[in-house]
Amino acid sequence: MSRPESSLGNTLRAWRARITTEDVGLPATRRRRTAGLRREELALLAGISTDYLLRLEQGRALRPSRDVVAALARALRLSTNETCHFHLVAGLLPPTPKGIPQQMPPGVQRLVSRWGNIPVGVFSASWTLLSWTSMWAVLLGDPALRTPEERNLVRAVFEGPSDMDHPLFSVEQSTTEFKAALVADLRITHGAYPQDEEFRALIGEVMSNSEEFRDLWSAPALGSRLGGHKRLRHPLVGEIGLDNDVLKVPDHDVRIVTYTAEPGTPDEEKLECLRVAAARSALPLSSG
């Protein structure tokens, strides 16, 4: 009776076949029967025996240790998502990153720079504002005038000092649904980054200062929608209704927040007035 196919073995063979000796700095040899690294070459790079790698690929060994999986992942040049998948097929929980990313990937930076006519802000997974367009500054107040700590939306919503009176915070603070959705997203971040001391300190700080936050944090709800239609009060154009969307970039774990107006509406005209104001003020694209 034939041995059933091993998902772990198939995965290892497929990844080994796509790696060349040049990729890993090994001397190239002319005669190769198959593409990719030889089994003994991968075993050497990972610091394991060739026999054990053979047993893994043939499905005779199904439970490699976390250290073996990590060594093979490094040797195979796996991406973050591939490393997570590798752990899962090996019967292990994926590794958790130590800290929340605080840098914008270049691709997101280029996108934001081309969206100058739209209010766009980019937040970390802890909801600290990392970058914004000039339209964001005109619509919601210039973040450059605030410290990095004050640019954290969690602090602003649940601890909001009296001087934080620009439209974003004055409207969002009164929205129970928004607060619940924000805390639900924070709970996901907490699970993804259990070793991030700065994030844990943030949660502890807000929890000690806000009974409402403590109640929401203890609730089991997950997956609430952060976006939706928002009505803001602006000192230049008065009340303005905008569609608020939150786009996540999983690999770098940032949130892109946008505000747009429905075409052909008075709200679009008001947003256009703010674009003119943004052009006159010449506020640059900024980052924290």
Rank of each mutant, 00 (worst) to 15 (best):
E5N: 09
S6P: 11
S7C: 10
L8C: 08
N10I: 13
T11N: 12
W15G: 01
W15S: 04
T20G: 05
E22L: 12
E22W: 05
R32E: 02
A35H: 11
R38H: 10
E41G: 05
L42R: 01
L42H: 06
A46K: 02
D51G: 09
L53D: 03
R55Q: 15
G59N: 13
G59L: 11
A61Q: 13
A61C: 03
S65I: 10
R66D: 15
V68D: 03
V69Y: 01
A70P: 08
A70K: 12
L76F: 09
R77P: 00
S79W: 09
T80R: 14
E82A: 14
T83H: 06
H85W: 05
F86K: 04
V89K: 00
P95A: 08
P95Q: 12
T96S: 11
T96E: 11
T96P: 06
P97N: 01
P97V: 09
P97Q: 07
Q103G: 10
M104W: 08
M104T: 12
P106F: 07
Q109S: 14
V112E: 03
S113M: 04
W115K: 03
N117L: 14
G121M: 13
S124D: 10
S124R: 06
T128S: 15
S131N: 14
T133C: 10
M135A: 11
V138W: 01
L140K: 05
A144L: 13
L145F: 08
P148A: 10
P148K: 10
P148R: 09
N152A: 07
L153Q: 04
R155Q: 03
V157I: 15
G160Q: 13
G160F: 07
D165T: 11
H166G: 04
H166W: 01
F169A: 01
S170L: 15
S170N: 12
V171C: 08
T175H: 12
T176W: 00
E177W: 10
F178N: 01
F178I: 00
V183H: 06
R187C: 02
I188W: 10
T189A: 15
Y193I: 05
P194V: 02
P194G: 04
Q195A: 15
R200F: 02
A201I: 03
A201F: 06
I203V: 15
I203H: 01
G204Y: 09
M207R: 13
M207F: 03
E211I: 08
L216M: 15
A219W: 08
G223Q: 11
L226E: 00
G227S: 11
G228Y: 14
H229K: 10
H229Y: 09
K230P: 01
R231H: 05
L232F: 14
P235A: 00
V237Y: 01
V237P: 05
I240D: 03
D245W: 07
V249L: 05
P250K: 12
T258K: 10
T260S: 14
A261L: 11
A261F: 05
A261C: 12
T265M: 08
P266K: 06
E269L: 04
K270T: 06
A277M: 09
A277L: 09
A282Y: 04
S286C: 13
S286P: 00
S286L: 10
G288L: 03
